[in-house]
Amino acid sequence: MSTLFYSLAILVGIGVLASVILFFVAKKFKVEENPLIEPTEKMLPGANCGGCGFAGCHAMAEALVKNDDISSLFCPVGGSETMKSIADFLGKTAPEKEPQVAVVRCNGAFCNRQRVNVFNGADSCIVESSLYSGETLCSWGCLGKGDCTKVCKFGAIKMNSDTGLPEVDQDKCTACGACVNACPKGVIELRKKGIKDRRIFVSCINKDKGGITRKACSVGCIGCMKCVKVCAFEAIKVENNVAYIDASKCRLCRKCVVECPTGAIQEVNLPPRKPVASVSSDETGVESKVEQN
């Protein structure tokens, strides 16, 4: 009985002593944290995705509180609304950014791009791209092993088994940029979400000469310059045999989409076209189209 009593007493004694020591140590070495950090962190989405460039939401909150000028800091997940409410709370000016979304700039589905060999290795794009140019003759496009889908914390990007390409769910995508960093080929780009989620982009990044691209893929950009000529807003540029549409200049007239001989330019969420007769090519037609949009 006495053994039980003594051991209990000693344990309780150690416990009390330790708590007293810890109490004073905690007082003495207390880390003073800015009281604003905690509420700021609560206002952030809490996804800890790293899309802002910091390790997580706490680090971002620290930076927001510490820096006077927060124009360079932006939480892509929360977007402008969250940034505005945080800025109001901290009494700083909020950075304004248009909402963005990830787009996959490759349309080399199984039916468009012939597979000429089989990769029998680790199921990972980064491993495959470290070893060779890929299963198709296109050495630029999507490898289809889904590294982007593995890093997405929001389940916004999924592989389509019919095409072998990743597809972005624009409602779930927060434009954190994890997939952009994961893709060894640089296929994914963050683009302006666009008014009413409407956007036009070149779905190809193949920098080979036209003939080589054509052989590798039926929907690749061959750098023919037709879209550049037809664009009334100088939004399209062709560099290194591949076209790129500047989203800030594009007014969604869709002329380039019609003009592209390979169908490399894609439109998203645009209403179906009217019968051919009404798609006029003169300037007024363009203007009316833009207004409709």
């Binding site: 680790a122 491993v127 470290s130």
Partner: peptide, 8 residues
């Protein structure tokens, strides 16, 4: 695939 990843 240890080596594949280590090489990367």
């Amino acid at each position: 695939p240890l080596l594949d990843y280590i090489r990367v």
